[in-house]
Design a protein around this nucleic acid. Structure first.
Lengths: 195, 195
DNA sequence: TATGTTTGTAAGTAAACACTCACTTACCAG
DNA sequence: CTGGTAAGTGAGTGTTTACTTACAAACATA
């Protein structure tokens, strides 16, 4: 079920991402979007019926992108390696497209509509769908600790990841997220590995 | 340095908190605030010079409240117990005043002004100022693991806490945050305790 | 050459926003 | 009784917002 999107629509979605990064949710207006696209406000409405549809298209693209990239990762093998590559993949993507960080982790967007709220929840759910089995298998194989439930490990890991992204964003993407992020993942792995 | 605030001003701040909980950042308008206070919009401006000042007063109150409550906790003793009570205190407070959760953890607010951004950073800094020494002492006493730096433990713990608050908020404060939160803290403690 | 479709524009709309102003009321001190 | 001050109101202000409408140019197809 791939939601189709035209080239022009994708350009607009990318422009929206850039605006989000530069000026935050409150900066994402049709006026700014038109300016970024270098054409009129009305032209935006030739490609999307509403602002909500633009945000939904952006989140939809992100959800599919994450799903696709995760599905390419090996489904078997060392859980520790799979755990690592899951996050390496995320850091690589966000390093390349920092303007999407604001979109995924901005709760300001959620307030705009129920549908946007749902899409963001779905993105989070996709990540858990790939992460949880890795943890569970790691526990089964005796690589990860069984002293706490797999769900709690997922919560702790996701929390650390989100906070990492938050810090990266509020410092204006200055640090290299691949390096600082992977350091953090290493620390977490040290914690959850069976001694 | 206690920022003074009149009774009426505090009522307005509380009303703002309630609106944030019910309708989010976008719902926090002067019109809604006036409605909640049951008087006119213009009356708000008798007590605050701008909307920004209201938000700053709210965050200022929170920062002081957190600082004060933390400073009351015992400064010595079992690090594990101190760690626990630090978060128990937080969960107790937010259970009692859920309308402030949105204020502290809402990045939508941050975009409104530099000063608001700074105040929110300060609240986070206060928490770290109390949390980090507990971790460091716990490591020194051999209670907490030294396999990763204290700063990384703080990051992981804070991330898990924030995500817990986030989940609580998006599920409309349905669960008992004292119970679910303390379960989470217990899991984290299991992870960071020296084996 | 005619015709339809796509993609753009200039100029608007109504609603929502933070904030202001002239004025009133209540109360308290001298 | 008088005058000052704190705290309220109704009716505005100008600006920004998402979105609309009437129209035009470009271009492929019949």
């Amino acid at each position: 079920m791939t939601t189709e999107i035209s080239d022009r629509q994708f350009e607009i979605v990318e422009a929206a991402g850039k605006i989000l990064t530069a000026s935050g949710v409150s900066g994402l207006t049709i006026k700014n979007l038109a300016k970024q696209m270098k054409f009129s406000e009305a032209a935006i409405y030739r490609h999307f019926t509403s602002k909500e549809q633009i945000i939904l298209a952006m989140l939809g693209y992100l959800a599919e992108s994450i799903d696709e990239r995760f599905s390419r990762l090996p489904e078997h093998g060392d859980p520790e390696e799979r755990f690592k590559s899951l996050f390496q993949e995320q850091f690589r993507f966000f390093k390349k497209h920092p303007h999407f960080v604001v979109a995924v982790f901005s709760d300001g967007l959620m307030e705009e509509s129920k549908r946007i709220n749902a899409k963001m929840a779905k993105i989070m759910e996709v990540k858990i769908r790939y992460l949880l089995p890795v943890i569970v298998e790691g526990q089964r194989k005796g690589v990860f600790t069984t002293s706490i439930p797999a769900e709690d490990i997922v919560h702790i890991v996701m929390g650390a990841f989100r906070l990492q992204m938050f810090k990266w964003r509020v410092t204006n993407f200055q640090s290299d997220i691949k390096i600082t992020g992977e350091n953090m993942i290493r620390s977490i792995l040290t914690l959850i590995k069976k001694k």
